[in-house]
Design a protein around this nucleic acid. Sequence first.
RNA 1: GCACCCGUAGCUCAGCUGGAUAGAGCGCCGGACUUCGAAUCCGUAGGUCGAAGGUUCGAAUCCUUCCGGGUGUGCCA
Length: 617
Amino acid sequence: MRFLTNEPIRAIAHRPSSGWRRRCLARKPPPMLLERYLESLGSQAIARALDLDGPRPALIRPTQDAKFGDFQINGAMPLAKELKKPPRELAQPIAEALSGIDAIEKAEVAGPGFVNIHLAPAWIGSRLTDALRDAERDGVPAVEQVSKIVVDFSSPNIAKQMHVGHLRSTIIGDAIARVLSFMGHQVIRDNHIGDWGTQFGLLIVGMREWGDETALKSNPIKELERVYKLASERAGEDEDFAGRARAELAKLQGGDERNLELWRHLLELSRGSLDALYTELDVSFDSWLGESAYHDALPGVVDDLLERGIAREDDGAVCIFWGEIPGAPKSLRKQKTPFIIRKKDGAFLYSTTDIATVQHRKRQLHADRALYVVDNRQALHFQQLFAVMSLLDADMELEHIGFGTVLGKDGKPLRTRDASGEVITLASLLQEAKERARQRIDEGIAEGRLRVQPEEIDEVSRQVGIGAVKYADLRQNRLSDYQFDWDKMISFQGNAGPYLQYAYARCSSIFAKGGLDMDAISGSATITLDTPAEQTLGKHLLRFADVVYQAGATSQPHLICEHVYELARAFNGFYAECPVLDADGPSRESRLGLTALTARQIRRGLGLVGIGVVDRM
RNA sequence: GCACCCGUAGCUCAGCUGGAUAGAGCGCCGGACUUCGAAUCCGUAGGUCGAAGGUUCGAAUCCUUCCGGGUGUGCCA
């Protein structure tokens, strides 16, 4: 498992290192993404206008303010020194070189030497019409080079309840897997469950001592946790008990049939509870290769590292000392902490299992990359793991997708078990979310504002409640710490999940009211952008593919959340200003097309981060 | 000790591959439901981007130092 046991969750807030950023940027997006296209237009224009021997970066950036147009070329200013001319003087011919391109309505020099680009509404309209026709991909190109990528996420410990802390790995990992998969990569979602560690010795002894078969059947994880708690407390104060637990673990790992049978039983029961949670969250896995799956490979891993002279024995344990390895990363060399791969009692560790896991992913699965969606606190572990794999020539791209810690409302790390004994389990969080959503819906129906049919209430409560929880987490930079707050987590107003779902329901409602079919409109409508509100909406729609690619390249689902939020805002603005059903002729058709594309993009965008939509709410 | 991370509006957070006047939500104050759904929209107020230097035509963003906070680090995962 990838969560620390019996430890409060502690605060850490990592930002990507510059190396991390560089790697993300090095991965090239395919052609025809908007910014990439403009960048190429811009750099050609620079070379042509200034009569340079080769292309220079145009440094295309979206403008901060619509009054500066849609994009700006910043590339003239860095050339000023080299060419010994004032930047505005360089910008002028660049702007002129951009005339006559159908994507660009006008390009003009501004400020100290920017070239502001205003996209042509007709060109935007035609691209949006293309996207509207593309029911399969909504205009998002598939990657040219497909990678096989393992996403290792969620990874709960079998014996314990999932609490709010586990939510992050589960939904961030799920979102990343969905995005990469949509981009066209071959994704393997792997749940590396903790099913083989020290806790099973305690559980085996504990179950035989205090186990309650009836309780185990009705709520397996709760019962396992109760027993585990008792056993782990007892082990702390009773050396004889602890010894028995270690012995039972050794027997289990040695293949003792009686212990294996109990182990399988516990596993199966836990698995049932986990499945229920994953179903609720709409998260699935391709494999559940937990720690136990790699057990047989561990001795070989250690022997191999010893033979190669990478590891050596010290005080009975087998360790890798970074200071003794010439090619090791500098920060590890300085740190002097060894990577221990076998304890002095002969047992293997998390580190050993992880090495075997990478080898399996390379040799058996032939994966190109593996992403580990795991709490930031384990950054050092992964740094060491990746360094070992590089010494072993694993030839795989390995990346730790860290995320911040869950904090309590007081800003301090949230404990899985605090003094008052209060535990926020994932199950209770989701239940509360659904109940609050339902209460809100009941109020709305009573006041005559909402149009939810009685038979739809359960499903709508679920989508709204769970969606709110997921969005609250996913909408922020995953590296930031996460402050848990019921009200914020289950917020129904402002930048929150229901806002986006509501915008979708509004789109849907227009089609329902007009007795129209969204798919039929998608196949026939031509989008033109006449009013400012339509243009604003259209420009947001145009950015979707770029956002998906950037989210995929940097493993940052919050970029998609942000985009969908901005899109919903733009749509609500359009909705307030532009009648759709009452518009005339081509304008009506175009607005229906815009509405359909907006609906699809909201649905697709939310779908990429694992959040559902409903037609009425 | 060593390594890593964080400090942006009253609160919660974006922005950090350097680019123009630092953006959202919540909260506050004020408007908009006879008009495709008010879980909505429009507007006002609110900031020496922890501090000081440096690099640069240009710094919230890069570098250095300092202040404040956090995490990891020899036999858990």
